[in-house]
Write a protein that binds this DNA or RNA. Structure first.
Length: 280
RNA sequence: CCUGGCGGGACUUU
């Protein structure tokens, strides 16, 4: 069984669903069984390749052969549904797991809340945030990031900021994902100085910005027409030892295509050449 | 009593 488990694990990483089914079938023929794991692996493969129907089929299949879905199974399926924006079905699965005696944990709640935020149901998402607390399930920094990102993407940065205060009151330490999401909210609403302040704040709290954080600010400054500030952030990024990524390059290329000022073109061209990265 | 190293979150193009 251990050999099969290891094998199926590797096949899962390789997204080889046919291989997993093949060895699952072979195990069954040899009277071996190791529970829900292979099915979870299959559902995660189908999540990664965007085959929701196959994930649902796998879920039905495991139940049909008498294998109980676990919290990992339900959460993986929820993740598939959220990615496919099938939010009603996700809620249905969320209820089904409870009926089956499987209590959602922080991760399961986070996935559902993320899905609700992605389709713009922000207030409804917040009811689940309250619901989970009532059930003794503590929202963590990931849960809050999904909600804050949701409000930011809806342009409600003020609301996001209010949630940020709750986080600190609940004793949660904001991490780089959370700061980046909030910085993105300020950038997208044109509040570049607020965004920059947050960069300083996170640095002062020894939460080091990563490439995504810098890219977010660089893009914000470029779109705000503040090319010099964008380049200052880029230089800071390099100075702090964060390698620009292909996204950094794409931001500069996009900006380059849209500007009309010749001097700025020259500046950007120089910066684009400095980025040692294969274009995608 | 314990037990899952990728079950969940942030950047560019619309």
């Amino acid at each position: 069984v251990a050999s099969y488990a290891a094998l199926i694990d590797v096949l899962g990483q390789a997204k080889d669903d046919k291989g997993v089914w093949y060895f699952l079938d072979q195990m069954k023929n040899r009277g071996l069984w190791y529970g829900d794991k292979p099915f979870n692996i299959l559902i995660r493969i189908y999540d990664r390749v965007g085959k929701l129907q196959e994930a649902e089929r796998t879920f039905e299949h495991m139940k049909a052969v008498g294998c109980r879905p676990t919290i990992y199974t339900y959460t993986s399926l929820l993740q598939c549904l959220v990615k496919a924006q099938c939010i009603e079905r996700a809620e249905q699965v969320f209820h089904e797991m409870q009926r089956a005696g499987c209590s959602p944990d922080t991760v399961a709640y986070s996935v559902l809340i993320c899905g609700l935020c992605k389709v713009g149901k922000l207030e409804y998402a917040r009811t689940f945030l309250e619901d989970m607390v009532a059930k003794g399930c503590t929202p963590d920094v990931v849960t809050y990031t999904t909600v804050i990102d949701g409000f930011c993407k809806a342009g409600k940065v003020d609301e996001a900021q209010r949630l940020m205060a709750d986080i600190v009151n609940n004793g949660i330490t904001p991490d780089v994902h959370l700061y980046s999401a909030l910085i993105n909210g300020f950038c997208k609403t044109g509040c570049m100085d607020e965004a920059n302040k947050l960069l300083d704040e996170m640095t002062s709290k020894s939460c080091e910005p990563n490439a995504i954080t810098y890219n977010t600010l660089i893009d914000g400054f470029c779109k705000a027409g503040r090319l010099n500030d964008a380049i200052m952030v880029l230089d800071l990024m390099v100075q702090k030892g964060r390698r620009p990524t292909v996204v950094t390059l794409n931001i500069l290329v996009d900006t380059f295509c849209k500007i009309k000022n010749v001097d700025e073109c020259v500046t950007i061209k120089k910066k684009m050449r400095e980025i040692d990265c294969v274009p995608d």
